[in-house]
């Protein structure tokens, strides 16, 4: 395993990401969980930068860490659901989950480090790889149809969200029975 500055930085950041994820997992308070998740996203976006994906990194920060997590926080506070208490689920259930998780990581780790794949340095890439210009070319040429369909999906999701969260009173007023 080569030890150099880059590797050290990677491990430090990886530890932060894992730590944030564990924090998400263990926090009693949902607001804390959300903040841990933001931290995790931020770290991952740094990884994106390392991996020559500057555009995706920016999107990660603005959309994920920004918009989506703000939405989460908003809903948590709207519902007043920061602290949830209730009966414990079955012990064997949690234990099984942890065992399985360990197994899962073990399997993947085996694949990563003991299946004969040599950990090599990354090849070079062209300048501008993963930048907005080249990515935009891809999006609007090769992937134009999926891109447009995605916009449709967003529209449907938006309508769905509006319809689902309408007040019961408003809903009945707009229903067929209340039509003038």
């Amino acid at each position: 395993m080569p030890v150099n500055v880059e590797t050290v930085i990677f491990f430090l950041l990886a530890a932060m990401a894992i730590g944030a994820a564990v924090g998400l997992l263990l926090s009693r308070n949902a607001v804390h969980s959300a903040l841990f998740l933001v931290l995790n996203f931020a770290v991952v976006s740094v990884f994106f930068l390392f991996l020559a994906a500057p555009f995706i990194a920016m999107v990660q920060v603005t959309v994920y860490a920004g918009a989506i997590m703000v939405l989460f926080l908003f809903v948590i506070m709207l519902l007043g659901a920061e602290l949830l208490r209730g009966g414990a689920s079955g012990r064997w259930h949690s234990a099984l989950a942890v065992v399985l998780a360990a197994g899962f990581v073990g399997v993947l780790g085996y694949v990563a480090f003991f299946s004969g794949i040599a950990p090599e340095a990354l090849p070079n890439v062209d300048a501008g790889f993963g930048g907005p210009q080249l990515l935009g070319m891809d999006l609007f040429q090769t992937y134009l149809l999926p891109f447009e369909l995605t916009s449709l999906l967003l529209l449907v999701a938006m309508i769905g969200a509006v319809v689902l969260t309408r007040d019961a009173r408003t809903r009945s007023a707009a229903g067929p029975g209340a039509r003038p």
């Binding site: 689920s89 259930h93 399985l100 899962f104 085996y110």
Partner: peptide, 22 residues
């Protein structure tokens, strides 16, 4: 009726399939 229970079962399946394949 518990979603997490179902998810657990799915996860069992995932690990089992991966283990089988490897």
């Amino acid at each position: 009726g518990y979603v997490r229970y179902y998810a657990l079962i799915v996860f069992v399946g995932v690990v089992a399939v991966l283990g089988y394949l490897l």
